[in-house]
């Protein structure tokens, strides 16, 4: 009986027989499904190899690099209390997005770990709740910008392959910035709901009710009257210049 069940077993998954396998990530296991050495078949578990997970050095050059940037200048202040992650709006949706841990990895120059988060590192929505809560005024929200710069510089291939820029969203964003010098949150919200096919919700009890309230107390009209920022013409030229520059760099 027992033998029959064994015969039915599928081909072993990578490192399947390792006790407490969940503690070891896939990258750390080397296992050939079919391997013959000197005529001896050592397929499967016989050639399993676990790479050392020991971190052999702290790289502070990376810390210094981040510290020199405007957005990352306060990296030295972080004492890892976790207030940023606790207050983050993104973390509940993307469990792997952990600002506290990202800052720590940047402090110790742990590129190996950072690399694993290329896909989620850009998820910061810039609500600045973390920066408001941070007891040391690290400004984690901007630290996430520093992180994005790092990702782009050190892992260009991963960023290219794992991140797809949504052209529609990019256009909406750019039009708003270049046209008005500000983000119009209402417009942004409507376009995102439209994109998700949830336009109906915009007029339901909760959202529609909120709009009605804002019309009543006048906030809706003040939003429409938003002027352009002071000295906008100059700023606009600078932004356009920058975008053009970035564009040429990327094309090269």
């Amino acid at each position: 009986m027992a033998l029959k069940e064994q015969e039915k077993r599928p081909v072993a998954a990578k490192g399947e027989h390792i006790i407490a396998r969940h503690l070891i990530e896939d990258d750390y296991i080397k296992e050939e499904k079919n391997l013959v050495i000197d005529g001896v078949d050592v397929s499967g578990r016989w050639n399993t190899f676990i790479f050392s997970r020991v971190n052999p050095k702290f790289d502070r050059s990376f810390f210094s690099e981040i510290k020199k940037t405007v957005v990352g200048s306060r990296i030295n202040r972080c004492w890892q209390c976790g207030m940023c992650t606790a207050s983050c709006t993104v973390t509940p949706l993307h469990r792997r997005f952990n600002p506290r841990a990202f800052i720590y990895m940047m402090q110790l120059g742990n590129m190996k770990e950072l690399k694993k988060y290329v896909d989620v590192a850009w998820r910061c929505v810039g609500c600045y709740k973390c920066s408001q809560r941070c007891p040391k005024q690290v400004n984690p929200a901007e630290m996430m910008e520093a992180l994005a710069l790092v990702m782009k510089k050190y892992f260009p291939e991963e960023v290219e392959s794992k991140l797809k820029v949504d052209e529609d969203v990019k256009k909406i964003y750019e039009d708003m910035i270049l046209g008005n010098g500000r983000l119009d949150l209402a417009k942004l919200h409507i376009s995102s709901m439209r994109k998700m096919g949830r336009t109906k919700e915009l007029v339901d009890r909760i959202e529609g009710g909120a709009v009605l309230k804002m019309v009543k107390d006048g906030r809706a009209f003040s939003l429409l009257q938003l002027g352009k920022p002071h000295g906008w013409k100059k700023s606009r030229q600078a932004i356009e210049g920058y975008l053009k520059k970035v564009d040429t760099i990327e094309k090269n």
Binding site: V54, N55, R100, A101, Y104
Partner: peptide, 12 residues
């Protein structure tokens, strides 16, 4: 052990 990230270290 780096108890914040989990995982051992051996640093000279």
């Amino acid at each position: 052990e780096d108890t914040l990230l989990r995982g051992p270290f051996e640093i000279p």
